[in-house]
Design a binder for these strands. Structure first.
Length: 640
RNA sequence: GCCGGAAUAGCUCAGCUGGUAGAGCAACUGACUUGUAAUCAGUAGGUCACGGGUUCGACUCCUGUUUCCGGCACCA
């Protein structure tokens, strides 16, 4: 007998060779149904993998996050088996579980199309009915290489494994796959799944290697969960900023205007301008000085900064004019360095915080462009803080606080901070090790002292220095870099920046690059998706819509109201078209205007206002003064 | 940039296996003069993304280009 120890400390003897499924069954039939896999001495075990020695066993039930991963991973195998049956020449790359789903990379002569997916699903269901056991087997590397001798992808994967490492293969019916495991034991446990899309994906994520066909799918324990997830995907389509941006006339793209070069329409620009003003005022309050520099600069400027060496591929082609060559700037730092150098600086001048609403151009790969999310012409609030070394901590923290304030005001949340460091094996970073060590240590120490949690990522630094990236999770479940604070000891060297210290000698300042809102383009895409197009009142392109019941009787009052609002700098519109009331209301609702005001006899009589909030059915009648006070408070507090 | 798909009226879309296009909404005109999500009628609107080819004939088939979409790679 072997001794199984459970998480709660209880122990129970079992026959050697007992499986997690049987253990669960021995405790309760309900538990058996709920159990998907198990941790045996920390190792992930399949439901049907025998246990031969004393062990700690932690059953993984369906409510556990890992259970869903196991299920999805098993569904990937199931799909691969189905694909192999339909397209026998298929070879397989990797097929992992991902968040809310799975994928498998496939190489086959047959081009897999969306319309093939139902066919594959059908085959999957057939295999489920066959109740194939998913059986684990452990073999040597040599044996594994022999078994998969016809599969170049598996050969490569096996070749990369350490000598002596346990290599496991899984067999279900006629299908055998190399796999670390954690499976549901039998295909009959896989019931509620859907294949979602086909796409191309480079083998091993390397753009220099061949491209495989990738099928994405999702798998759940219940039909309700599956439906719920599909509904989430539907909702994301509704939220898509490209769809909303068009419907609400926020921005447009036009082939003739240029790929990836968005045009801000009046509605979108109103929102952006409101945000710009907000950030501008906030920055002033935090001691920033605003300036403006050109979109074009000499190549020499960017050679001095090092951008040209490190960034050339991301820049638009050069412009030559006689002996001079110009670049469309991808960043604004060099200009700010020039400004710093334009005067003799004293230690008393520091910190010097320059901020600018910058237009910059990056020659992004055409395939990556998408709506306002990935563009080639972008606008952002950029800032460079010139500081003494003893001011770094204070300045980084102050920037971080500003970032926090803005993110909170925009109803967003920081998901995590990323401390991006260099990777010495890669050539894309400047090579002064001493500067790097100092900069990285400074940031790390600062975060640690302030007990700010972060994830360290090697190789993600800027070429000139390490950075703290503020990662935000969007309504589309994407993690994006919203803000960034970068420590730079390099550009001060490159541009020979100095200040006169209290000792009368020249010293080198430090530059802190601070990005606040990603870019206005990307921020707009995020906010559109976040609010589903229904902006809070302070941001809404149109805040109030005044609709008279009858033009004859109520137009004057409606116009007087509209004028009052406009004088108070509220963004009001009045609908004087010869249309039915219901029609105007429908349009106002579709435009997601926060307040629609219908004025008729009653309102004219007592000088009141009847309003209806966007998305609500309720109509509220209040005095004019009360209404104005309410809306102004709402705007001031940035509440909805 | 790479793999795959798509492109029809301002918008959303229909158009079977080749016989030169249709709806709803929007626009315009007229009637109606309205109390919370579409009043009625009429009019106009398309080089079927662009170029080449096959064919008696191409929105439809082939091909090149452009842009967009799903991903990959890259990335704010």
């Amino acid at each position: 007998m072997i001794e199984i120890t459970f998480k709660d400390g209880n122990q129970k003897p079992f026959e050697p060779g007992i499986t997690p499924e049987e253990i669960a069954g021995s405790i309760a039939p309900g538990l058996k149904k709920k159990t998907v896999a198990a941790f045996v001495n920390e190792d992930l075990y399949d439901l049907n993998r025998p246990i031969y020695e004393d062990a700690k066993v932690d059953l993984i039930t369906k409510d556990n996050e890992i259970a869903l991963e196991v299920l999805n991973h098993s569904t990937a195998h199931l799909m691969a088996q189905a694909v192999k049956r339909l397209y026998p020449d298929a070879k397989f790359g990797v097929g992992p579980a991902i968040k809310d789903g799975f994928y498998y990379d496939i190489a086959t002569e047959h081009t897999i199309k969306e319309e093939d997916l139902p066919k594959i699903e059908q085959m999957m269901r057939r295999i489920v009915k066959e109740q194939e056991s998913m059986t684990r087997e452990e073999i040597t590397k040599e044996e594994a290489l022999k078994r998969f001798k016809d599969d170049p992808y598996k050969q490569e994967l096996i070749g990369d494994l350490e000598e002596g490492e346990i290599i496991s293969v899984y067999t279900q019916g006629e299908f055998v796959d190399l796999c670390r495991g954690g499976h549901v034991g039998n295909t009959r446990h896989i019931k509620h799944f859907k294949l979602l899309s086909v796409a191309g994906a480079y083998w091993r994520g390397d753009s220099d290697r061949e491209m495989l066909q990738r099928i994405y799918g999702t798998s759940w324990f219940t039909e309700e969960e599956l439906k719920k997830h599909l509904a989430v995907l539907e909702d994301r389509k509704e939220r898509d900023h490209r769809k909303l941006g068009k419907e609400l006339k926020i921005f447009m793209l036009d082939k003739k205007a240029g790929q990836g070069l968005p045009i801000w329409l009046p509605n979108g620009y109103t929102v952006r301008r409101t945000l710009e003003d907000y950030v501008y005022k906030l920055e002033r309050k935090h001691g920033y000085k605003h300036l403006s520099t050109p979109v074009l600069g000499t190549k020499e400027l960017y050679e001095t900064s090092g951008h040209f060496d490190h960034y050339q591929d991301d820049m638009f082609p050069l412009m030559k004019d006689g002996d001079e060559t110009f670049v469309l700037r991808p960043m604004s730092c060099p200009h700010h360095m020039i400004v710093y150098n334009s005067e003799l600086r004293s230690y008393r001048d520091l910190p010097l915080r320059y901020a600018e609403i910058v237009i910059q151009h990056r020659y992004e790969a055409s395939g990556g462009l998408s709506g306002l999310e990935r563009v080639r012409a972008m606008t952002l609030t950029d800032s460079h803080i010139f500081a003494r070394k003893d001011q770094i901590k204070q300045e980084v923290l102050s920037a971080y606080n500003l970032i926090n304030k803005v993110i909170t005001d925009l109803d967003l949340e920081i998901d995590y901070l990323e401390l991006a460091l260099r990777d010495t094996t890669k050539g894309k970073f400047h090579d002064d090790d001493q500067l790097w060590d100092e900069a990285e240590a400074t940031l790390k120490q600062l975060l640690d002292e302030e007990k700010i949690a972060y994830r360290e990522v090697k190789g993600e630094a800027a070429f000139y220095g390490p950075k703290i990236d503020v990662q935000v999770r969007t309504a589309m479940d994407h993690v994006i870099t919203m803000s960034t604070v970068q420590l730079d000891f390099l550009l001060p060297e490159r541009f020979d920046l100095t200040y006169i210290g209290d000792d009368g000698a020249k010293h080198r300042p430090v530059v802190i690059h601070r990005g606040l809102i990603s870019t206005w383009e990307r921020l707009m895409s995020i906010l559109l998706e976040q609010y589903k197009g229904a902006f809070p009142t302070w941001l809404a392109p149109v805040q109030l819509k005044v609709i008279p019941v009858s033009l004859d009787a109520h137009q004057d009052y409606a116009e007087a109201l509209h004028e009052t609002f406009t004088d108070l700098e509220l963004r009001s519109e009045i609908d004087l078209r010869n249309e039915k009331l219901g029609y105007k209301i429908r349009e106002a609702q579709q435009a997601k205007i926060p307040y629609q005001l219908v004025v008729g006899d009653k309102e004219v009589e007592d000088g009141s206002i009847t309003y209806r909030r966007y998305g609500e059915k309720e109509q509220v009648t209040v005095s004019k003064a009360t209404f104005i006070e309410m809306v102004q408070q709402e705007i001031k507090n940035k509440t909805r």
